Simulated scan of single mutants.
Amino acid sequence: MMATTTTGQESYSLNLLGENSGDGNDMWTTDTTEDVTDVHFPLGVDREELGETVWGLASTTIIIVAVVGLFGNSLIILVSREIFRQRPTMPNLLLIYLSWTDVLNCSLGVAPLALSYYFKIYVNQAMCDFNATVLLALSVASQMIVAVMSVDRYWALLYPFSYNRHFGYDKWKIYPALVFIFLYTIVVSVLPLFGLVKNVPQYPDSYCMFDWTDDSPSGRVVVYINVVNMFLCLFIIVVVNAIVAAYMLRLRRVRPRLPSRDSEIAATSPAGVQECRLEIQMAKLTLVVAVAFFCSWFLFATRILANQIGGWPNKDLDYLGARLMTFNSVINPVLYIIMRKPCRKGCWMIIKSGVHYVTFKMVAAPTMSLAETVAAR
Rank of each mutant, 00 (worst) to 15 (best):
M1W: 10
T4P: 07
T6K: 06
G8D: 11
E10A: 09
E10V: 11
Y12I: 01
L14D: 08
M27K: 15
T29M: 12
T30Y: 06
D35H: 15
D38F: 06
P42N: 14
E49M: 09
L50N: 13
V54D: 13
G56E: 10
I64N: 03
A66C: 15
V68G: 00
F71G: 03
N73T: 09
S74M: 00
L75Q: 06
R85I: 05
P88K: 15
N92D: 08
L94W: 14
I96F: 13
L98H: 07
L104C: 01
P112V: 07
L115H: 15
S116C: 15
Y118R: 15
A126H: 14
D129S: 04
A132H: 00
L135H: 14
S139V: 11
S139M: 12
A141I: 00
Q143L: 14
M144K: 14
V148P: 02
V148A: 15
M149K: 02
S150I: 07
D152C: 11
P160C: 03
S162L: 13
W172Y: 06
K173C: 07
P176Q: 03
A177I: 15
F180S: 12
I181V: 11
L193K: 08
F194S: 01
F194G: 06
N199V: 10
Q202C: 05
P204L: 06
T213R: 09
S216M: 03
S218R: 09
V221G: 00
I225C: 11
I236W: 13
V240T: 14
A242Y: 12
L249D: 10
R250C: 01
L251F: 07
R257S: 12
R261V: 11
D262K: 08
D262Y: 05
I265P: 02
I265T: 01
A267C: 04
P270L: 08
E275W: 01
E279F: 03
I280C: 02
K284N: 09
V288W: 02
V289Q: 10
A290I: 04
V291M: 11
A292R: 01
F293S: 04
F294L: 05
F298S: 05
F300I: 07
R303M: 11
L305S: 09
Q308G: 09
Q308R: 01
G311D: 09
W312A: 13
P313L: 08
N314I: 01
D316N: 10
L320T: 08
R323I: 12
L324H: 08
M339E: 12
C343L: 05
C343V: 00
C343Q: 05
G346Y: 00
C347E: 02
I350N: 03
K352C: 08
H356E: 02
T359L: 12
M362Q: 05
M362G: 08
M362N: 09
S369Q: 13
A376D: 12
